[in-house]
């Protein structure tokens, strides 16, 4: 927690520059340094961003739920807005997971959509769930009730993630008898380094975007207050 609170004091331009640098390094590593996968060849290079983006999306949803809990539990002022922005980031990254995953499925198995890919299906469920979150939020007037509803629904989300994952796993045996076994890359050497750098770059990018959006939203609220003052 202390790391996060320290991170929130880093000025925004520094964050933006750091994520740009890290992203450039990550892309260079992905395209020029990481070796071709023995099994999947060049197409395995999607993995570095696809998996990192997925993890980042989970982190955003978890952060949203954490802020939601803070709102319900400690009544932190501003926790509601932070929770909403984190969930919003999560949905953006979740959409990117669906898009990149779909492209990966096309290269590897020749179909744009595969019900056998656990993570894709899970992200589809989560996408539907969090779209409903926005519907809920925008059909209640701003105020304590909206904050409570959003917070409670965001908490449902973090319980839904593992439950849905389990459900999709056990559903495979009757929905899809043939199981695609993706031979995981042998982690080690440059593959591991590239993955870690890409992961760090995306987490930092997500955090930067989160801060940008949060600043905008807070500014918006302040201007609105001034207008009615």
């Amino acid at each position: 927690m202390r790391v996060v609170s320290r991170l929130s004091r880093v000025p925004l331009p520094a964050l933006a520059v750091a994520s740009l640098v890290l992203m450039t390094v990550a892309l260079t590593l992905v395209f020029y340094v990481a070796p071709n996968d023995a099994d999947q060849g060049f197409s395995q290079r999607i993995f570095y961003f696809h998996v990192s983006i997925a993890f980042t999306a989970y982190a955003c949803f978890a952060a949203g739920a954490w802020k939601a809990l803070r709102h319900l539990w400690k009544r932190d002022p501003g926790a509601d807005l932070e929770s909403y922005v984190a969930v919003h980031q999560g949905v953006i990254f979740g959409t990117l997971v669906l898009l990149t995953g779909s492209i990966w499925a096309k290269i590897s198995w020749g179909h744009w959509w595969l019900w056998g890919e656990d993570e894709l299906v899970l992200f589809l469920v989560l996408f539907l769930f969090y779209c409903a979150y926005f519907m809920l939020r925008f059909s209640v007037d701003p105020g304590p009730q909206r904050a409570n509803f959003s917070a409670v629904y965001a908490l449902f989300g973090v319980v839904l993630i593992p439950v849905s994952f389990l459900a999709i796993r056990i559903a495979k045996s009757f929905v899809h008898p043939e199981v695609f076994t993706l031979h995981g890359p042998n982690f080690g050497g440059w593959i591991l380094v590239t993955y870690c750098v890409a992961q760090a770059a995306l987490l930092l990018l997500a955090y930067t975007l989160y801060r940008v959006e949060l600043t905008g939203k807070r500014l918006d609220a302040r201007i609105r207050e001034l207008r009615f003052a």
Binding site: L99, T100, I103
Partner: peptide
């Protein structure tokens, strides 16, 4: 190659999203 095209497309999608 086709694989290269698809990988590039995937990264472009991410870039376009951002």
């Amino acid at each position: 190659t086709t694989a290269e095209k698809y990988v590039t497309a995937a990264y472009c999608v991410v870039f376009a999203g951002v």
